[in-house]
Simulated scan of single mutants.
Amino acid sequence: MDPDFSPLDDLLEAEDADGYLVDDTSHNSTQKYLSGFEAHDPFVTLYTPEKTILLVSALEYGRAKKQSRADEVRRVAEYDYRELVSEHGPAEAKARAHAEFLDEYDVASVLTPERFPLGPADGLRERGVAVEAEESDRVTEIRATKTDEEIEHVRAAQNANEEAMRAAENLIAAADVEDGTLVYEGAPLTSERVKEEIEVTLLRHGCGLDDTIVACGANAADPHDQGSGPLHADEAIIIDIFPRSKETGYHADMTRTFVKGDPSEEIRERFDLTHEALNAALDAVEPGVTGADVHDVVCDRYEEAGYDTLRSNATAETGFIHSTGHGVGLDVHELPRIASNGEELKPGHVITIEPGLYDPSVGGVRIEDIAVVTEDGYENLTSYPVELVV
Rank of each mutant, 00 (worst) to 15 (best):
G342W: 00
R155D: 03
D308Q: 14
D18M: 02
A58I: 08
L54M: 11
L11V: 14
A175Y: 06
V177K: 00
A95H: 01
E92C: 07
L231D: 13
E247H: 00
E163H: 12
E276Q: 13
E92H: 09
V139T: 10
R127K: 11
H349Y: 10
E379N: 10
V285S: 02
E334L: 09
G128S: 07
H88Y: 14
R125K: 13
E83Q: 15
V298Y: 00
Y184S: 15
L357K: 02
A70L: 04
A173S: 15
L55I: 10
D222Y: 09
D41K: 13
R337W: 00
V285P: 00
D262I: 11
L118E: 14
S136L: 11
T382E: 07
V372E: 09
Y79V: 12
N279Q: 13
R69D: 11
L202E: 11
D300L: 05
A157M: 03
Y20Q: 03
D18Q: 10
P120M: 11
D234P: 00
P90C: 07
I172K: 09
E379K: 12
V298C: 06
L381D: 00
S245E: 10
D148Y: 07
R204N: 14
A64G: 03
E162T: 01
N170G: 14
G217S: 08
T274W: 03
D222T: 15
D179Y: 01
N159S: 12
H232M: 12
G364F: 04
K94P: 03
E343F: 01
E354L: 13
K146Q: 09
S312Q: 04
H153D: 12
A174I: 04
I213G: 04
V389P: 03
P113G: 14
H98E: 13
E104R: 13
E354F: 07
L310D: 08
E317W: 03
G180Y: 03
V259G: 03
E235M: 11
R125D: 04
Q31F: 08
T112L: 02
E134V: 06
K146V: 01
T255M: 06
S57Y: 01
D272I: 04
A233W: 10
A97P: 01
G363S: 11
T248M: 09
A156L: 09
D283F: 00
I213N: 08
I267S: 06
T382N: 10
S361K: 13
I267T: 14
